[in-house]
């Protein structure tokens, strides 16, 4: 939402638009501001970080070097355990193949956050499309809402697990191994998470349709297409933005859960969930390998949830200006 408010900010000087008010209200929600800052730090860390910390997350040294440099502990372990194997060259240690943990965390975070954002966009587009169509065109309301109900009644996690195995091969052939799995995971999450958005948007559109400005627009002969893009969509933006924010959180969690269960990304293309899963077997000796990715997932989701909370309050006109 901040992107939107910042983009619209310059031309909003003359006519102060509503997103400016939303931003003012958002700023007063301390939890949301902390969430925004933490989220931005994590995003910058994983996207800009690799330019500063240039270690290769995939590089496996030759056997002799690997045995020497594998299984380093994080540098801070030296504080309470002087005999720990630590090195400044690998501040967060190395894994059992001597790959740098910090670089792996950053590359994993890039994938996790990219999956979260893309899946959210897909689910929001699907949800808004179905919601607007169902709310605006009476003929499509019945079938589309039955479809929504059907999706809500499907056991989604089992089906995602099954589908992630079914379509892995064909998509990997089409887009390459990594791209194929990215497309697979993103579309699976997107296709199974649009229902709440569709329901909320449909309800709002139904209410909007009865308003005078819609009647006025109709009376001057506005086409359906213009009506939706110019009059209906801008007015249902607030619920869409709230579900978009919360959608990022649930997409990241679903992706990590898939990777954790071994149905997501392959081990050489790590995401936070995959890193966590790979480290569980040796978590007694190397708890940091579990704790770091897990904390990062939780922190990202927590900050996104707080942002969603603040956004919901900021977009609620009953609270705004209080």
């Amino acid at each position: 939402m901040t992107e939107a408010s910042q983009q619209t900010a310059p031309d909003a000087q003359a006519t102060r638009n509503q997103w400016w008010d939303v931003w003012d209200q958002f700023k007063t929600h301390s939890g949301a501001m902390v969430g925004l800052v933490v989220f931005l730090i994590i995003v910058f860390g994983v996207f800009i970080g690799p330019f500063i910390w240039t270690a290769d997350p995939q590089a496996i040294p030759s056997v002799v070097d690997m045995i020497k440099t594998r299984d380093f502990r994080p540098i801070y372990t030296a504080l309470w355990d002087p005999s720990a194997k630590v090195s400044w060259a690998n501040p967060l240690g190395t894994d059992n193949l001597a790959r740098d943990n910090l670089a792996r965390l950053m590359s994993g975070g890039r994938v996790s956050i990219a999956v979260g954002l893309t899946a959210m966009v897909l689910s929001i587009v699907l949800g808004s499309l179905i919601g607007v169509l169902a709310g605006y065109f009476k003929r499509m309301d019945g079938p589309l809402m039955r479809l929504t109900d059907l999706f809500l009644a499907l056991p989604l996690l089992p089906l995602i697990l099954v589908a992630s195995l079914l379509f892995r091969e064909p998509l990997a052939n089409m887009f390459g191994t990594e791209g194929g799995i990215f497309v697979l995971i993103v579309s699976l999450i997107g296709i199974t998470s649009w229902m709440q958005t569709a329901r909320i948007v449909r309800g709002d559109v139904l209410a909007l349709k009865e308003r005078e400005f819609v009647l006025a627009a109709r009376s001057i002969g506005t086409s359906d297409r213009n009506m939706i893009t110019r009059h209906v969509l801008p007015n249902v933006m607030s619920p869409i933005m709230v579900s978009a924010t919360l959608g990022i959180a649930s997409a990241i969690i679903t992706e990590s859960a898939l990777s954790f269960l071994g149905f997501g990304f392959p081990p050489d293309f790590p995401t936070w969930g995959r890193l966590l899963n790979d480290s569980v077997d040796r978590m007694v000796s190397y708890p940091e390998r579990v704790i770091w990715p897990g904390t990062l997932i939780s922190l990202t989701v927590l900050s996104v949830n707080y942002m969603g909370d603040g956004l919901r309050d900021a977009l609620d006109p009953r609270i705004r200006g209080r």
Binding site: V280, G294, S298, V301
Partner: peptide, 11 residues
């Protein structure tokens, strides 16, 4: 809400 069970469980 935010800590997924596969992390809280392991933790």
């Amino acid at each position: 809400f935010s800590v997924p069970p596969f992390f809280s469980g392991v933790l």
